[in-house]
Write a protein that binds this DNA or RNA. Structure first.
Lengths: 115, 115
DNA sequence: TGTCATTGTTAGTTGACACTTACGTTAGTG
DNA sequence: CACTAACGTAAGTGTCAACTAACAATGACA
């Protein structure tokens, strides 16, 4: 799982995912969208493939890549708690913050056990 | 924005975000959950703060941290296209794949950028 | 004031990683 | 078979980040 997060942390790899999200593209086509050399893209594709984020299909001398929805779903499963808490807490946090300012700063007892 | 993605790519920092998601914790309390030294956690907190993912509040000699919902929402805004395409394309991709096998492999004309 | 407690900061080291160049591999074509 | 096209792989390099140890800063308290 950590490999998946690390894979999408690289901007070029996220851009690759955007490219092969809808269309199946060859390695050369993908590389033509970037400034870096083709082997660099090839290594990025390797990382994405090992992470299960893209599929590789050989067709003659070319290799066609495509985003793998199941892999992207795993990213969501790992990260969705952030906005689950985020969106749900967005309103609540604002209210709590407002209440806190009216009450004044918390004393020391609040940090230990009870809120 | 790249800093935000890079911030959450580190497992320890994601764990910190989980800790301060609901409760406001001091740096020492956060550090006590980890094996690494306090300075390491302090640096992680710095990265999270610079990325806008946590807020820092001073109370005496302590510093209290809390997750910032707006920051987490920005992560979602950047990454949600993945599962938007992912879930929507999960069915479509299967159908397209099936159709492709009936049609046979793509010919060279489909490779747009050539020559 | 002196001392403790809590935390941030700096210096330095180690390891990961993104990149390039050169080479190897596989498939098609005369 | 010789040649080319499309890729991947290996080796080497430079940069960045995560960590530890030592130091500094700030506030509380007798």
């Amino acid at each position: 799982m950590d490999d998946i997060i690390r894979a999408i942390s690289e901007p070029s790899r996220r851009e690759i995912l955007r490219l092969v999200r809808h269309d199946e593209l060859s390695a050369g086509q993908i590389a033509s969208h970037f400034q870096v050399t083709r082997p660099a893209i090839s290594q990025h594709l390797r990382v994405l493939k090992d992470a299960g984020l893209v599929t590789e299909r050989r067709e003659g001398t070319r290799r066609l890549y495509r985003a793998r929805p199941e892999g992207l779903a795993r990213v969501r499963a790992e990260l969705e708690w952030m906005w689950d808490a985020g969106l749900a807490k967005l309103k609540e946090a604002a209210e709590t913050e407002q209440e806190r300012r009216q009450r004044g700063p918390m004393d020391d007892a609040t940090t230990s056990g009870r809120r």
